[in-house]
Each structure stands twice: as structure tokens, then as C-alpha cells.
């Protein structure tokens, strides 16, 4: 994983496997307090306290193809590397909230990467899930909701490629406006 966006893409796969119907991704960056915070919140089936306590262990996974699961440990590693940490709250039947904090200016903090591309990939592949994206900076806030776009345009999926390109452009334009570091894949 070379960008945080790819890490988020991976973490969201956990929410998808947990049968979530709403997944909210939030990225906050503040130069004032030297903080970057990434939160992925879902309404999936959640984890038991036992699983929750072991989930950052790379040798813990719920899948059966093999006995390792690296998504969460990798993000934790990258957060630790950048002077931060990873925290998960979960309840069975309630959902899971995962947040990673990183020092914004830390030299080992990964670049955010292609956030808009990450969101459009998720939307194309999972038309049944509502994705919410929020990006906050010292200059402002941008919110994007896949359900809102669907309702506004009267569509039921995101199979139209030119629409995806436009959505990417729209997100990138708005991210640029609030001085976000992860627009246009940078």
C-alpha cells in the first residue's frame, strides 16, 4: 500500500464483508494541530469483544481462504509510523467504527492518494451500499453522498463511465477548494 487511499479502500472491504449498507469515510486534516484523522464507520454486523481485542493481530481473520488478515494491521503500522495510532469501536449488530490518527507533517506519513478514485471504485462495484465521504480541512468541509447523487440524477447504479469521470472531477474540484492534500491523486 503506497497511499492512505488504498489503505482506506482495503479497510472498507471489511465493512462490505460485514454486510454494511451504509459506509461513511471521513478524512480530517488540520495543519493547525498537525493532525490527520481517517475514520471508516459502517452499520455492518459488528464484532464481538473477543474478536475486537484480537483484530489488529495479522494472524486473525474471519475469512477461510487463509489464516492471515493484513488490512487492519497494515493501516495500524502506517499510523504508528507517522506518530499516530489506530482505534476500533464495534458492537455486534451495531456496526464498526475504525479511526486512524496520523501526524499530518510527519515525514513518514503516506500521501493521501487518489481519494476520489477510491470512492468511485467503491460506488461502481457496490451499487447497493450508500457511501458517504466527508473531508475536513482548516479551510472548510466537503461532503459527498452516493445516495444523494443517485436520487438527484434518478439512477440506480454507477455503471455510466462518463458519469464516474464527472463525479471524480467534481470531488477533486471540491477537495482542491478546501485545500485538501488528497485531490487529483496527490
Amino acid at each position: 500500500m503506497i497511499t492512505l487511499a488504498l489503505n482506506i479502500l482495503d479497510i472498507v472491504q471489511n465493512s462490505i464483508s460485514a454486510m454494511a449498507t451504509e459506509i461513511a469515510v471521513e478524512v480530517t486534516e488540520s495543519a493547525a494541530v498537525d493532525l490527520m484523522k481517517i475514520t471508516v464507520k459502517d452499520n455492518g454486523r459488528g464484532m464481538s469483544q473477543d474478536l475486537l481485542s484480537r483484530v489488529t493481530d495479522p494472524f486473525v481473520t474471519t475469512r477461510k481462504t487463509r489464516r492471515i488478515g493484513l488490512g487492519i494491521p497494515l493501516l495500524k503500522y502506517h499510523a504508528n509510523l507517522a506518530g499516530g495510532d489506530l482505534e476500533i469501536q464495534s458492537g455486534e449488530g451495531i456496526g464498526t467504527t475504525l479511526s486512524a490518527t496520523l501526524k499530518l507533517q510527519h515525514p513518514d506519513r503516506q500521501p493521501l492518494g487518489d481519494l476520489a478514485g477510491m470512492m468511485t471504485i467503491l460506488m461502481t462495484a457496490n451499487p447497493g451500499i450508500d457511501f458517504l465521504y466527508t473531508h475536513k480541512t482548516d479551510m472548510g468541509e466537503y461532503c459527498f453522498s452516493s445516495r444523494e447523487v443517485m436520487e438527484y440524477l434518478g439512477i440506480t447504479d454507477f455503471s455510466d463511465v462518463s458519469l464516474l469521470t464527472d463525479i471524480r472531477e467534481m470531488m477533486n474540484n471540491n477537495l482542491e477548494d478546501i485545500g485538501a492534500s488528497g485531490f487529483n491523486g496527490e
Binding site: 488504498l6 479502500l9 482495503d10 472491504q13 497494515l74 477510491m118 471504485i121 461502481t124
Partner: peptide
């Protein structure tokens, strides 16, 4: 395939390529 291994190996670009 878009698990940790796939994403780390560049599955995002491949998926974007196929869609496009």
C-alpha cells in the same frame, strides 16, 4: 480481486482500466 493483497498489487488501476 480487491483484498489487501490485490489492492497492494495495483488492483485499483486494473479495475479502473476495465471499467473505462
Amino acid at each position: 480481486a480487491m483484498a489487501t493483497c490485490g489492492i497492494a498489487a495495483g488492483a485499483k488501476e486494473i479495475m479502473e482500466f476495465f471499467v473505462e
